[in-house]
């Protein structure tokens, strides 16, 4: 299983590398989103900066992670079906989309620091939170893109299904990252962090339990 997992992740990475235009497309999407925000807001104060950053992450996640299932041809699923277990396939897709999202969140963080300023007190902590955040966003959206792909719909459906589900996750993330912005004492920060990790685990477990049913025809 571990071997199959590695092969699947490697296959996705390789496809990404060979079709560079989609990768650059997502990168350009990030850049133009951040630029549009910069044109409208200039250099906002720390709290707005935080909110705008997480909104950007949400939109980038929808666009970057949608590719994980929606870019595959429906008939190719039948081929994968004969090769690997559904759980392996889902986990491979989750690993692939989280690593894509990690790269994209680092890029958007870099662009934010250039264009919108760097109002952070604890930069390292913020980077860590944004990395955890991109994993949680991509876990939810990977599963939803599987649903959208099976329903033969586009990524708009994924956004409709996903936005209400991830709103609380985004609120947790932005509250967590307030600590990195100003060194104010925040009671219950660790509880919130544990809740976020527990929520991620719940999403992954639900995905593993439910994906085999999506997979069957």
């Amino acid at each position: 299983m571990a071997n199959n997992l590695l092969i699947l992740v490697r296959k996705d990475m390789l496809m990404e590398w060979r079709q560079k235009h989609t990768l650059y497309g997502v990168g350009l999407y990030v850049a133009s989103t951040v630029f549009a925000i910069y044109m409208m807001s200039g250099q906002p104060e720390a709290k707005q900066w935080n909110a705008l950053f997480w909104l950007t992450q949400l939109f980038v996640a929808v666009n970057a992670v949608a590719k994980s299932f929606l870019q595959e041809h429906p008939n190719r699923f039948r081929y994968y079906f004969t090769l690997v277990k559904p759980t392996t396939f889902l986990i491979a897709k989750m690993i692939y989309s989280s690593s894509l999202m990690l790269v994209m969140s680092l890029i958007s963080l870099l662009l934010y620091s250039i264009l919108l300023g760097w109002p952070l007190e604890q930069g390292g902590l913020f980077v860590l939170i944004s990395l955890v955040g991109s994993v949680s966003l991509s876990a939810v959206f990977t599963f939803l893109s599987a649903i959208a792909a099976r329903a033969q719909q586009n990524s708009a459906l994924m956004a409709i299904l996903g936005f209400p589900l991830v709103t609380p996750v985004l609120m947790i993330l932005s509250n967590l990252s307030l600590k990195a912005i100003s060194p104010v004492y925040q009671p219950g920060w660790w509880v919130l962090a544990i809740v976020l990790v527990a929520l991620d685990l719940l999403v992954i477990i639900l995905g593993i339990v439910l994906f085999p049913f999506l997979w069957q025809e």
Binding site: F143, I147, R150, A151, L161, L165, L206, G207, L210, F213, L214, Q216
Partner: peptide, 11 residues
Amino acid sequence: AKISAVYNIFA
């Protein structure tokens, strides 16, 4: 039926 059941449980 299958897809909406999966989404209902997930949601």
